[in-house]
Amino acid sequence: MSEKQPECSIAIQVLPKVEGEEVIRVVDEVIAYLKSSGLPVFVGPFETTVEGPFDQLMEMVKECQKICIRAGAPGVSSYVKIAYNPSVGVWSIDKKVTKHHQ
Rank of each mutant, 00 (worst) to 15 (best):
S2R: 06
S2F: 10
E7Y: 02
E7F: 05
S9D: 05
V14P: 04
P16I: 04
V18L: 14
V18F: 15
G20N: 13
E21Y: 05
E22S: 15
I24D: 08
R25W: 10
R25C: 05
V26I: 11
V26W: 07
V27Y: 14
V27G: 10
E29H: 00
V30M: 01
V30C: 10
Y33C: 00
L34T: 01
L34M: 13
K35R: 13
K35F: 05
S36K: 11
P40G: 06
P40E: 09
V41P: 12
F42I: 01
G44F: 05
P45S: 11
E47Y: 04
E47W: 03
T49W: 03
T49V: 14
V50T: 06
E51L: 06
P53R: 15
P53H: 15
P53V: 12
F54W: 12
F54L: 13
F54S: 07
Q56I: 13
Q56P: 02
L57P: 00
E59V: 02
E59K: 00
E59S: 03
M60G: 08
V61T: 10
V61C: 05
K62C: 04
Q65Y: 15
I67R: 03
I69K: 09
R70S: 12
R70G: 01
G72V: 05
G72E: 10
V76A: 10
V76L: 08
V76W: 04
S77W: 01
S77C: 01
S78A: 12
S78D: 02
S78P: 00
Y79K: 07
K81V: 13
K81F: 11
I82C: 03
Y84C: 04
N85G: 06
N85Y: 02
P86R: 02
S87V: 14
S87R: 10
V88E: 15
D94A: 11
K95P: 01
K96L: 14
V97I: 10
K99Y: 12
H100I: 02
H101Q: 14
H101L: 15
H101K: 13
Q102F: 08
